[in-house]
């Protein structure tokens, strides 16, 4: 399966220090098109730090990132977006008082020129938003006029994802704990969205504390522990017990068993 294909992005020997704290130590990561890579690990294991380096928010202390086999240097999140890497965070960056279309285009509004003055093209943004939500995510909102605050958690997630997906260049989508605040039904919807995007050939990186979610959608699981990569396993060839053991640390497991 996808194991065979070349990775779009490879992070090699990434180390990140914050002052005296080593958040990441010699970590590798590969993401492939049409594949969901889950990253799991205890609190503070370095998951968020790793993907913030991938999305240009942080710069690594040492290590390299390659995109399509070419070295990639990014100075900001905007650089990452330009190269087709974007992220959706758990605390969604949505303005609740604006409608979904306004949120989808927030910061990169579509405009039209009237008498030489640039005005927002609200109608175009609305139809485009409807199109992206329907075509790419299979989501139909009951009303495009309602404030975003009136949407359910899963619908809000869809709006945030649609914002990333609207960028035609997008190839790698990172999701940091997207289901953490969602109930079972909305979680199922969000996982469905992830599968839809995988079908479209995106590389998805999913950070989650829920092994249920991870085993439901991922193709491979990368386990982090105390800033190091413990290992990467193929989801079909492993089980919860093994992954849990890697998260907690087999040594400590053994100690506890004694």
């Amino acid at each position: 399966m996808s194991q065979a294909s070349e990775p779009i992005v490879s992070m090699r020997q990434i180390t990140k220090r914050f002052g005296g704290v080593t958040a990441l130590n010699d970590v590798d990561l590969d993401a492939r098109a049409g594949e969901v890579l889950a990253i799991v690990g205890d609190n503070g294991a370095g998951k968020s730090t790793l993907i913030k380096i991938l999305t240009g928010v942080f710069q690594p202390t040492s290590g390299t990132i390659e995109l399509d086999g070419e070295a990639l240097a990014m100075n900001s999140h905007a650089d990452a977006i330009e190269r087709g890497i974007d992220a959706v965070y758990q605390t969604l960056a949505l303005a609740d008082h604006l409608d979904p279309a306004a949120n989808l285009f927030l910061g990169s509004e579509l405009t039209k020129s009237v008498l030489g003055i640039r005005f927002l093209d609200n109608r175009k943004m609305r139809s485009e938003a409807e199109r992206v939500l329907a075509d790419r995510l299979g989501v139909h909102l009951k009303s495009m006029d309602a404030e975003t605050s009136s949407l359910s958690g899963g619908q809000r997630q869809a709006v945030a994802i649609a914002r990333a997906v609207y960028n035609r260049n997008l190839r790698i989508l990172v999701m940091d704990e997207p289901t953490a605040a969602l109930g079972p039904q909305e979680t199922a919807r969000t996982l469905k969205l992830i599968e839809v995007l995988r079908e479209q050939g995106l590389a998805i990186i999913l950070i989650s504390h829920s092994l249920d979610d991870v085993f439901a959608v991922s193709d491979r699981i990368q386990v982090m522990r105390r800033g190091r990569r413990v290992g990467t396993v193929v989801t079909k060839e492993t089980n919860r017990q093994e992954v849990l053991g890697m998260i907690v640390g087999a040594g400590e497991m053994a100690q506890e068993a004694m």
């Binding site: 960056a93 949505l94 303005a95 609740d96 604006l98 306004a102 927030l106 509004e109 927002l120």
Partner: peptide, 13 residues
């Protein structure tokens, strides 16, 4: 548009 966004969620803006 940005006036509403800033008032609604400054961090998101």
């Amino acid at each position: 548009r940005y006036t509403i966004a800033i008032g609604s969620n400054p961090e998101a803006a």
